[in-house]
Amino acid sequence: MVIGEAAIRAGCRFYAGYPITPQNEIPEYMAEHLRQVEGGVFIQSESEVAAIHMVAGASAAGARSMTSSSSPGISLKQEGISSLAACQLPAVIVNMMRGGPGLGNISPSQGDYFQATRGGGHGDYRVIVLGPATAQEMADLTMDAFTLADQYRTPVMILADGMMGQMMEPVVFKEPQPRVYPEIYIMKGAGAGKSKFIRGLILDPLDMEEHNWTLDRKYQVIARKETRHELYGTDDAELILVAYGTGARIAKGAIKRLRNTGLKVGLFRPITLWPFPTNELRDLAKKVENFLVFELSTGQMLEDVRLALQGFARIGFHGRPGGVVPTPAELANVVTRQYDRKQGIIEHH
C-alpha cells in the first residue's frame, strides 16, 4: 500500500502486474487508486512476462511505469528486465521476496539477492537494487527509484520481503521531485520528423561490444555515485553486524539486547544492494576487526561482504533461509556464541 501510494505520488502512471502472494496489496491498491489519477493505467496482465513487457511499452511511450511481484514471478520477468536494460528504458520493479527456490513458500526471505544484484536475466547488465528496512523507507525509496530510473534510463528494483510488505508503520510522504526526462527518449510517433527506433538487437559484434561498454560506463558512474548505507552504533563497536531489509531490523533488535549486556555491537546496513557500498564497508575495517553477516538466506550478500573485507577483517555468518524469521533474541545468542573478545568472531567458510 505504501509502495503504491508513493509510486502514484512520484508520478507513476502505468502499472501492470499479475497476482502473487505476498504482494497482492500493491496491484489491489493500484487498481483502485491509479485509475483515479488523470492518465493512470492499471492492467492485470495475463502473466508476469506480459506485465513486464507492457511496462516496457508504456515506459517507451513516456509514462513512469512499474510492476511488482514476488520471487517466482520475478524470475519470469527477467526476460523483460534484461530487455529494459538493453533498450535503456526506465522502470521500477518491486520484488517482495518469499522463500525459494521453486514455488518455495510465502514467508519472508532474502533468497533473491544474487538474482537481483547480478542482473538477473541474460546478458551483461546491472539493475539498481534498493533494500528498504522501514515503511518510511519503502515510501522514500519507491519515489527515489523513479528518479534513479529516469536519470540513468535503467530498471530499478525495490528488493523487500513479505514482512516488509505486510508490516504497518506510520509514514510521511515526502514532496515528489518533478520529472526530468528528455523528450528525445520518448517514442510517440515521428510526427513530421525523422523516425526513431529502440532496440537491443545489435547483430554486429563490434557494435554490440560498444553497446556493452556504453552500458558498463553508465553502471560505473552509478557504482561511484549512488551507493547508500546506514551506520547504527558503529562508533564504539567492537563487532559489526552486516544486514539489510528485514534482516537489519532483527539485527537492530539484537544489538539493543547485546548492548544491554555490555557488548558493543554496531550495524552496517547497505541500502543500495547494487551498487553495494563496498568502500564504505571497507572503511569500517580500519578500526573494527570483526564482522558478522546476517541474512534470511544461506549466504548471498555474504559474498559482497567478502569482496569488501576479505583480508581486512574476520567475517562470520548467520543465515535463516526458507521463510524463517528469527527473533532478535536468537540473533543475539548467535553473536555471543560466535564472538569471543579474545579470539574474535568464528570465521565462516
Binding site: 492492467i43 513487457h53 516496457a56 511499452g57 527506433f197
Partner: peptide, 16 residues
C-alpha cells in the same frame, strides 16, 4: 517509430 519486442511479446508491448 519502432520499438523491438522480445520473442512473442509484441502485443504486450503494444498494449503498454
Amino acid at each position: 517509430d519502432m520499438i523491438e519486442a522480445q520473442h512473442g511479446r509484441g502485443p504486450a508491448m503494444a498494449t503498454g
